[in-house]
Amino acid sequence: MDTTRLLSKETLMHKTKSSTIPDRSRPGLTTAASSIGNQDGVEKLATGETNVVRLAKEEFTVGTWNVRTLHQEGKVNQLTYELDRYQWHVLGIAEMRWLNSGETTTDGHKLWYSGDEKCHRKGVGFLVHREYAKAVMESEPISSRVIRVRLNANLRNVSIVQAHAPPADCNDEETEEFYDSPRITLDKIPKKDIRIIQGDWNAKIGCDVYQNWKGTIGKFGVGEVNERGARLLEFCKLNNLVVANTFGKHKTSRRVTWIAPDGTTRNQIDFILLDRRCKSCIKVNKTRSFPGADIGSDHNLLMMTMKLKIKKVRRQPNCRIKYNLQQLKDTKCQEEFEVKIGGRFGALLEMEE
């Protein structure tokens, strides 16, 4: 056999192996190694500065759901029952209709809420999975429409704001007053935190304005933008946020978040807004609405999955003190022990006598 031909064949095989990587999802299949344009979540801004968000192997799932009411017997149990069918970490809730603010535990999960002081209307809250409840660093009930929690995560902490915008028939003054509250809340969040603001915005963004708001929204909105939607887009632009649930190419039933009483009118009015610098962390295939979740509401459960590792704070085990009783067989040690114990409990022995 020609030695030169054999060497060239081995060289070719070596080059082929080095330029291909195995596809883990289908064993034995190889695909050409592609260049990674946004490795480790590096995003270059227009100013020339570079923000880096390291991508974690673990996934973090946050959701929002307008449940219409939790002020009914058994509603909270129904909520946790429905969520057990999904993988989730933190759920923001709108229209809880609970009074005042506080925290409670249900089925091991931790629930923080902020409601009206007098009437069972409006009200927002956060339900945190039992395994991650101790990762919550702080919670802040702001109003009956806005609440915030902060979670301990690797590299960067996460601040999540749950909001519930006024309905479409409210005047512009009330709408602007509402937007002031999330804006002030976002300004108070530490700059290094990953910011997520989500909820029922009562606004339609649509897909017709994609070219005008490219980078802020994706191509996969529903319907056409309205006046409230334009206000929401301005809010996103001013605060460097992206609308996470408009980037996935899902079928319409998995993009719609609200169904009218007539059963035919469907819109997308619930949104999850995320820091622009973390856009590459979004798992678009897992960021969508879940129409199968049922709690008697006209809104669908909406969840976003991203690459992030939340710290699990585990309880410290109880340390039991073990005594070496064999040492009491030593006379000297026994005498020292009797003196020590006698000094501590001498008063009690005298009382008994």
Rank of each mutant, 00 (worst) to 15 (best):
D2C: 13
E10C: 09
K17E: 03
R26Q: 08
A32Y: 04
S35A: 03
I36E: 12
I36Q: 13
Q39D: 03
D40S: 11
V42C: 13
K44S: 09
K44C: 11
G48A: 03
E49R: 10
E49F: 05
R54Q: 10
A56D: 06
N66W: 08
R68D: 01
T80Y: 11
Y81H: 14
W88M: 10
V90M: 05
D107K: 14
K118R: 12
H120A: 13
V124F: 07
V136Y: 01
E140P: 00
I142G: 02
A153N: 07
N157H: 15
I160P: 08
I160Y: 02
Q162T: 08
H164D: 10
H164R: 05
P166A: 04
P167L: 01
D172R: 13
E176K: 08
S181R: 15
I189G: 03
K191C: 06
K192W: 07
R195Y: 03
I196R: 03
N202E: 07
N202I: 09
G206E: 05
D208L: 08
Y210N: 05
W213S: 02
G223E: 00
E227D: 14
L232Q: 10
L232F: 08
E234Q: 14
F235S: 12
C236V: 13
K237S: 15
V242T: 13
N245L: 04
N245D: 14
A260N: 13
G263L: 11
R266C: 12
I269F: 10
I269Q: 06
D270V: 02
R277Q: 10
C278A: 15
S280W: 05
N285A: 09
R315W: 01
R320D: 04
L328Y: 10
E336N: 14
E336C: 11
G342W: 13
A347Y: 09
